[in-house]
């Protein structure tokens, strides 16, 4: 583990970014964007936030590629469940 990965500067930068996009997500809501655009925006922001936390705070960015894949790829499966449920919910009477 090299010093640079744990450097305070990077953390502060990430922290500021996190706060900035949290606020961004928060203030778009009252703007009255069309629903789908608003939702898209919000979800992208959530993914960005999640990405920052995982990559920098949890350090995943600095791990070996094999480790990164072994953690991230399985998540596709739970997303598949969510997609199937949403599809079921919108296309049939439940």
């Amino acid at each position: 583990m090299s010093k640079q990965e744990h450097s305070k500067k990077v953390y502060i930068k990430v922290w500021i970014w996190l706060l900035a996009i949290t606020i961004a997500g928060f203030i778009v809501s009252p703007l009255g964007l069309p629903g789908w655009l608003h939702n898209l925006f919000i979800v992208i922001i959530a993914l960005m936030k999640g990405g920052l936390i995982v990559a920098y705070f949890m350090h995943l960015k600095f791990e070996r590629l094999s480790l990164i894949y072994s953690i991230l790829l399985p998540l596709i499966l739970i997303v598949a469940l969510a997609v199937a449920l949403l599809y079921e919910g919108t296309t049939r009477f439940l």
């Binding site: 998540l75 739970i78 997303v79 469940l81 969510a82 449920l85 949403l86 079921e88 919910g89 919108t90 439940l94």
Partner: peptide, 14 residues
């Protein structure tokens, strides 16, 4: 958590 949120998603759309 994913399962909880997916279930929530289903409730939301139905």
């Amino acid at each position: 958590f994913g399962a909880f949120l997916a279930a929530y998603g289903l409730f939301r759309v139905t």
